Simulated scan of single mutants.
Amino acid sequence: MASIKVKFRHSSIAGKEGSIYYQIIHQRHVLQVNANYRILSEEWDEKRSMIICRTGSDRYDQLSSTREKIRLDIERLSKIIRELDLRGISYTAEDIVDNFEHYSREYSLFNYMLTQISTLKQRGKVRTAETYKAAFNSLRKFCNDDCIMLDAITSEMMEAYESSLQANGNTPNTTSLYMRILRAVYNRAVENEIIENRHPFRHVYTGVEKTTKRALPIHIMKKIRSLDLSRYPQTDYARDMFLMSFFLRGMSFIDMAFLRKTDLNHGYISYRRHKTGQALKIKWTKDMQHLLEKYPENPTDYLLPILTKTGIDERRAYRNISYNINHQLKKIAELVKADIPLTLYVARHSWASAAKAKGIPLSVISEGMGHDSETTTQIYLASLDTSVIDKANSIIIKSL
């Protein structure tokens, strides 16, 4: 069986840091693997082949971290050797090193996350990929771009990351979202038998807190609808898109932007949600048609006057338009004296609130929509006959 030794190479220059390397010995063949860790000569215990960590030293945290990384490297090398032995076939010291270097390339946390992000994009889950990328960028910043291996993720590391997110002003739900994304990536690696599950997320928050009130009462929605904004076309457009979202049962703006003309058939809009892929069907009403007819017909294949140019980066255009609309909605909030920040997403919450206020059964629109869980709401919607939901929508629109 192969053996592993941790070695220290002194610097040829006095007072300079030397380097750590691993010595792999198998069938009398010796290979060296550079570990890319550097320490001073006095920080190395030659007899015990380990780093000296003196409590109170300025370099204590750094040296402790390096010692833990070495321990994990040796654990990986030992695992590789055990797996090669179990195969029952001949192998060389070069095979051990090749496997170790392959693991280091493929199964660093960042490389593995980037692979997951790429897979999500290929499957058309662009929004989810963007959320994963945000979590990736946040964690990379926390780690100062230091390469972290998947099996090096610990409970202590995740607690420190959570504290960092909180200190930087992130809300509990944002912090929890990043933790859930990392947990999903970690669990995928466990399922693929790349690492063993050490449950590093057991002490961090991964729940979802109720958000602050985001729904407008129906009398404020009436004020928004009756505003004369003819002198302010950008603000008028923002109001119309806000109302269109409300009329369309709180449809998210990304789904509105990518609605195609072919999605409107026989008086119904049929589409799949970008976020969940769930198929929905909405009755097209005269109120929706009136808003649509205020604007020139979209020259593209899209139905609504949102993405109106061809040959553009549609995702970027959608984000810019969304940003501009939300900016204009702040002005509208001031005009109607709304007591909450007004954004496109408020239309979704407001529709749910209006449904509840009109006595629509919770089986039609669950109380969780906009308050507890959007996913739960979609499950309720999917289980009902479309005509029931359309009837509820008609009641709400007529109340404006």
Rank of each mutant, 00 (worst) to 15 (best):
Q166N: 13
Q166K: 15
A167N: 15
N168G: 11
N168F: 09
G169D: 11
G169R: 11
G169W: 07
N170P: 06
N170H: 12
N170E: 09
N170M: 13
T171P: 09
P172F: 06
N173D: 05
N173W: 06
T175W: 04
T175E: 04
T175A: 08
S176E: 01
R180H: 03
I181W: 09
I181G: 07
I181R: 06
L182F: 05
R183C: 10
R183Y: 07
R183F: 04
R183N: 13
R183K: 14
A184Y: 07
Y186C: 10
Y186N: 08
Y186G: 08
N187R: 14
N187L: 15
R188Y: 10
V190D: 10
E191P: 06
N192R: 08
I195Q: 03
I195G: 02
E196C: 12
N197G: 08
N197T: 05
R198N: 09
H199S: 08
H199Q: 11
P200M: 00
F201Q: 00
F201K: 00
R202I: 03
R202M: 05
H203W: 01
V204W: 01
Y205D: 10
G207D: 12
V208S: 15
V208L: 13
E209R: 15
E209C: 14
E209S: 12
K210F: 13
K210M: 14
K210V: 15
K210N: 12
T211Q: 12
T211D: 09
T211V: 14
T212A: 15
T212P: 10
T212N: 14
T212D: 15
T212Y: 14
R214V: 04
A215Q: 07
A215C: 08
L216D: 02
I218W: 02
I218V: 10
H219L: 04
H219Q: 12
I220D: 03
M221E: 08
K222D: 03
K222W: 00
K223P: 05
K223T: 05
K223W: 02
I224R: 03
R225M: 12
S226G: 03
S226C: 01
L227T: 01
D228E: 03
D228T: 03
D228F: 02
L229Y: 00
R231Y: 09
R231I: 09
R231H: 14
Y232R: 07
P233W: 04
P233R: 07
Q234C: 03
T235V: 04
D236K: 07
